[in-house]
Simulated assay, not measured.
Amino acid sequence: MDLTEHYHQLYKKSTEAISKGNYKLDSQINNTADSRFGITLLIRPSEKVKSNIQLFLNELKAIEPEQYYYPDSDIHITIMSIISCYEGFTLDEINIQEYIDIIQQSLVVLDKIKIEFKGITASPSAVMVQGFPTDESLNDFREKLRENFKKSTLQQSIDNRYSIATAHSTVSRFQEKLQNPEKLIEVMEEFRDYNFGEFTVENLELVYNDWYQREENTIHLAEFMI
C-alpha cells in the first residue's frame, strides 16, 4: 500500500464530507454501559511525539472544545486488533498465555521498527496523525502474526473488519455537532504536513481494552521488548 496516497485520499474525502456537514458523531464515547472490549497488540509513541501531538490538539480544542481528545496515556498505534472489540467480551473466555506464546513466536521476524509521524489525516468521524514506518519491518511482523494466529484454534478476528496496513494514531473523535467546521479544516490544513517526530519502537504492549483505548478501562497483559 502507498501510505502517502492512502492518507491523502482519506483526508480529501473526509474534509469534503466535514465541510458539507456529512461528518459522523460517535454516540458511544460517553456511554458508561458500553461493554465493547477486545485484545490489541499496540505501540506507544515516544514522549516527544506525544508532546507534539498535544500541541496540535490544543489548536483543535480552541476551535472545537466539545469534541473528544485523546490524552497522552491513550495515544497508540494498533499493530493488530487480535480480538476486535465486541459487546460482552471478557478475559475469562480465553487463555492469555496462548496469545502471548504466538506473539512471541512471531517476533522472530522482527528487527527494529522506526515510525515517522508526519502530517494529519481524517475520517468522517475522527482526526488522525499519519504514521509512516521507515521500512517493511512492521508489515512483515503483521504478516507473521496473521499466519500464526490463523494456524491456531484461538478466538481471533484478525482482518475481519479490514486488513490493517497503516500506522496512524487516532487523536480526536467527533462527539458533538461541529461549531466551526471551516475553521477546523483550516487548522488541519496548517498541520497537514507537520513533522511530529520519529521514534524507534522499544517495546510492544498486549492489552485488554475498550473501543477507545482509555487507560482506566485497559488491562495490561504482556510487554514484548524488541
Rank of each mutant, 00 (worst) to 15 (best):
L91Q: 01
N203G: 05
D135E: 09
T170Y: 04
L138M: 05
Y212I: 07
D74T: 06
E189L: 12
T166F: 14
N30L: 15
E223G: 08
L57W: 05
I219R: 03
S152W: 04
Q105E: 15
T170S: 09
I103C: 08
H168R: 10
T121P: 01
E198V: 15
K151M: 12
I96T: 09
R146C: 07
A122Y: 01
K183C: 06
F174W: 06
E59K: 13
R142S: 05
T153V: 12
Y208E: 01
S14E: 03
H76C: 08
R214D: 02
N139E: 12
Q67T: 07
H6E: 11
E216L: 11
D34I: 09
A126K: 00
E215Y: 14
T166C: 06
E216Q: 12
D210V: 09
P133N: 05
D34R: 07
F149R: 04
D101Q: 07
E182L: 10
E87M: 05
E189V: 11
E215A: 15
Q175E: 13
I115L: 14
E176S: 15
D2S: 11
R36D: 13
N148R: 12
T90W: 02
N209M: 09
Q105K: 15
F141P: 00
L91S: 04
T15R: 02
K114D: 14
F149G: 06
A122E: 03
E59T: 09
D92S: 03
F196C: 03
I103Q: 03
I75V: 01
E176I: 03
K150S: 12
I75M: 07
I115T: 12
R192L: 13
K118H: 11
L10R: 01
R192M: 14
A165F: 08
V109G: 01
S152A: 05
M1A: 14
K20S: 13
M188H: 03
N30I: 06
I39E: 00
D92Y: 00
I43D: 04
F132L: 11
K24E: 15
